[in-house]
Structures are given as structure tokens and as C-alpha cells.
Design a protein around this nucleic acid. Structure first.
Lengths: 138, 138
DNA sequence: GGCAAAGATTGGACTTTGTCTAATTCATGG
DNA sequence: CCATGAATTAGACAAAGTCCAATCTTTGCC
């Protein structure tokens, strides 16, 4: 996975390269997402972003997560109908989901091979493939 | 996929074999689910169950879907954070999801092969593997 | 069949996650 | 340094799903 340490300038740069104006709130949220390699839900992002200084609203967190997702900076992981997780790793890879604890971990793309991928119908493209391995206590 | 025509007695039997008392509402819901081989969300099940005679409440639909899921009669498909789909086919298989239309179709298990499945940590079991291929218009 | 106990159903209040809106604040380029 | 367009915000709103206490069904038993 990517390096875990970003300076403010790195983040400004990252956002700019994706056509995103770097505001305080967006930088704070980017920092929350990229400084740790975890899968966070929106409420966690909100809490973490306001840990130092409360200056980011719920609406902005949702706006920003959707923006980052649309611009390909992060990826949504849909495993729990109760909440969406956001994954700062946009490289192709898969997920292991602990149904009991809600813990979500990565499975490297190389470790899991899929053959027989369906060809999308004409005029359609495959946007992505999600593999979720669900585990639970015996 | 399974036969699409069930008599009332077939359904009574099916529920009994899964340790479920066959009430009117449960039979109606079972009928809705098993008489068509579609992926339905709870609101669709509610609407369809009450199409002939309105006698099933929202609470009962949710109770029953959860019960059927717990007893292994149906399976949850989590592809859209907005709603859970229920799949009357509990055999291992995968899904093709049209992001634009919300249409969800099956991919037969034989057609898509996965190798390198992670071994669950000690004391844990793999509950299932979901593969979702997301497609959209070009 | 008739009856009591256990189980199922219900309306409606409630919770949670996420979206929307209209008003305010901020950043930026000239 | 100011105008303008973009970003942020509080809080109202929406949709999916859960919960509860009262009521109604089913079932096992005589």
C-alpha cells in the first residue's frame, strides 16, 4: 500500500492533480483518509476530521467523500447495508469482511485470481469487480 | 434455477422444513419471492405481497425477510447502499449489477472461477464469497 | 372441537445514514 | 483589494429499517 506520511503540500498537490480546489476542510479530510490505511465510514471521517479543531460539518464530509470518489481518489466499499466504507486504496484489490466485528481488511489483487469474467453487453463497460469474502466466528 | 411454480402446499412444506410456522403473511411473502426468480428489495416485496389483498404490514415484511434469511431460505445481496436485495436462489453464484438502472442479474457459479481464496484465521469460518461485477453505460 | 399458551402481526414512533437548500463565508485572479 | 464563483454550513428532510406494546393467530392438547 502507499506511503502513509503526507505533508500538507503533498495533499494540496494530490487534490490539485485531481482538479480539486484545496480547502481547509478537504485537506483535513484527505489527511484523515490518507494518513491511515483504514476503511472508514462517513461518521468516523467526520469525528476524526474534527478531532483537532471542529471546523468541518457533516454536509461537507459527505460532499467531499462523494467528490473524492467521483474524482477517483478513493473508492466506496459496499459490504454493510448500514454504512458505506471508503477505501483510500484505489488499486484493484479485494476485501475480507468480518461480519461479527465489522472489520474490513484488504486482499491483494494478486492473491485472488478470477477467471471467466463476463463480457459486458454492447454499449456497456465493466466499472469494477468487487470480491467480498465474509468470515465470522465459528 | 429452481422451478418457478409452487402450490400453497409446496410452500407450507418448504417453510415447515425450515422450522418456520406457515402463516398467511409468510406464505404470501414466500410466494412473492419464489414464484419469480428476481432480486427484490423489501419495498417491492411489500407492494407485491399486498397486490391481491392488503394484509401484510411493513414490519412483517422486514421480520419475515430476516427470518427467511436466517433460516437459509433466501440470501441478502448487498450491492446498493440504499437498499438490500433478496435473492431466492441460495446456491453459490455471483452477480452482475447495472449501476445505471439498478438491475441485478445472476452469474452462474461455474462461469466464474476464483482461485487463491484466503484461509480464514483460526476459530473463524468463511460464511460466503460475493462477487459483484458492476457495469454501466459507456 | 375448544382453549390456553406461545408465537406472529401490527401501526406508528423512532433511528440512522445520507441528501438538499438557501444563506453565508471563503478563495482567487485581475 | 475587491468582485465573483465556488465551498461550507445548519438544519430540515427523506428513505430504509428497527422497535414496542397491544392485539390477533396458530397450535398442541384434552
Amino acid at each position: 500500500m502507499k506511503a502513509t506520511s503526507y505533508t500538507r503540500e503533498d495533499l494540496v498537490d494530490l487534490l490539485r492533480r485531481h482538479g480539486i480546489a484545496p480547502t481547509h476542510q478537504r485537506l483535513e479530510i484527505a489527511h484523515v483518509l490518507f494518513s491511515r490505511c483504514e476503511h472508514l465510514a462517513a461518521d468516523r471521517v467526520l469525528a476524526l476530521a474534527n478531532e483537532r479543531f471542529a471546523e468541518t460539518s457533516k454536509a461537507t464530509v459527505y460532499n467531499t467523500l462523494n467528490l473524492f470518489r467521483d474524482r477517483g481518489l478513493i473508492r466506496e466499499v459496499i459490504v454493510d447495508p448500514k454504512r458505506v466504507f471508503y477505501d483510500p486504496n484505489t488499486e484493484p484489490h479485494h476485501h475480507l469482511y468480518n461480519v461479527d466485528t465489522g472489520e474490513l481488511t484488504d486482499i491483494a489483487a494478486e492473491d485472488l485470481r478470477i477467471s471467466g469474467m463476463p463480457v459486458p453487453p454492447p454499449g456497456m463497460v465493466t466499472e469494477g469487480v468487487d470480491v467480498i469474502v465474509r468470515i465470522r466466528a465459528l
